[in-house]
């Protein structure tokens, strides 16, 4: 039997991810002097932003005992939809900020709607989250392929240069994706840690029955986690589209797995019941840094990126179990 008291259990799982991140940074700095340079750091953060924004939402879903496999294809579908809508508005509204604003609104609304749909199917019809989101993952992926007619949807060229600063621009040398990511993280951390909603998510994830018997509005809380995740996918897509200015059936491929992996590496329990947003941020950074390191150094082929990430995920879960002190 365990003699774990709360503090000890948390201490182990807290230190694990931070330690891993520090190790990676030290290793990186030793291997390549450019690693800690401003350019590389902002590059890493910007790349983390898309998965990161989604992973913050995923943290809530998983903490409340759910799962969402559809976020990657959802992002692709939203990107495709956004581009189509904006392109079709150019003849009537001309090239200008309003078109982009409409595109952004479409992205957020589509994300919200997609998240609500997942959530309603899961809470109202009582279908397993895994099944529902596996289904919607396939549906969105195929919809974007269909919208693009098997090829690539490209944003109107003039519009693209107008939109590009949203990805490449920023203030004080910090680009918008990083700023948005940071804001999302801060809000997410506060919501998880010090609101009734965050507490309810953890309660539902630890024991749905207990939550129900404690008058928690279980279905509404769970629905909200999926809706919020959908909204965040929309937000991530808004930041992502100006980067390439296009969407295809390969957009957002495997984002769901990276987001889930980041959440788990960060110390959120896959079964639900305990989650932390700042851990997720560390998880995302770890995943991005591995890729970045492999690109900057030539000890290991970058093609082995996936293998190393995979090993780290398994290791993180093993450490979590140890952390629960047997």
């Amino acid at each position: 039997m365990s003699d774990a008291t709360a503090p000890r259990r948390i201490r182990m799982t807290v230190i694990g991810p931070i330690l891993a991140l520090v190790l990676l940074v030290v290793a990186g700095a030793l291997m390549n002097p450019n690693f800690l340079g401003w350019d590389n750091v902002t590059n890493v953060l910007a790349r983390s932003a898309f998965i990161g924004i989604i992973a913050v939402g995923m943290t809530f879903v998983i903490t409340a005992g759910g799962l969402d496999l559809s976020v990657g294809s959802m992002a692709a579908f939203i990107a495709g939809l956004m581009i189509l809508v904006m392109n079709s508005l150019v003849p009537s509204m001309g090239v200008g900020i309003p078109v982009i604003l409409v595109g952004m609104a479409v992205a957020l609304l589509a994300g919200l709607a997609a998240g609500l749909l997942n959530g309603i199917l899961i809470t109202r019809l009582g279908i397993e989250a895994f099944i529902v989101t596996l289904g919607s993952m396939g549906i969105y992926r195929s919809l974007v392929t269909w919208l693009a007619d098997g090829g690539t949807l490209s944003l109107d060229f003039a519009l693209r240069s107008l939109y590009q600063p949203v990805y490449y621009g920023g203030i004080f040398g910090i680009t918008w994706p990083i700023i948005v990511f940071a804001v999302v993280v801060v809000i997410g951390e506060i919501v998880m840690r010090s609101t009734a909603f965050g507490r309810h998510c953890a309660a539902i994830g630890s024991n749905e029955q207990v939550a129900k018997y404690s008058s928690v509005r279980v279905d509404r809380v769970r629905l909200t986690t999926y809706a919020a995740l959908g909204l965040l996918v929309g937000l991530a897509t808004i930041m992502y589209v100006p980067r390439l200015g296009s969407a295809s059936s390969a957009t957002g491929m495997l984002w769901e797995l990276e987001a889930i992996a980041a959440v788990i590496i960060g110390g959120t329990v896959l079964k639900g019941g305990f989650g932390r947003v700042w851990g997720t941020v560390i998880g995302v950074l770890i995943l991005t840094l591995i890729g970045n390191l492999l690109n900057l150094t030539d000890f290991v082929s970058p093609y082995l990126n996936g293998a190393i990430q995979g090993a780290i995920i398994v290791l993180a879960v093993v450490l979590q179990r140890e952390g629960k002190a047997r």
Partner: peptide
């Protein structure tokens, strides 16, 4: 199985049913 969250502390359990009393936006 229905009354208490065994993996959580006393405080979280105590206030779960009346959490709105402890929340003005933030807990």
């Amino acid at each position: 199985t229905r009354g208490l969250l065994l993996g959580k502390g006393l405080r979280e359990n105590l206030t779960l049913q009346a959490l709105s009393k402890f929340s003005r936006g933030l807990l």
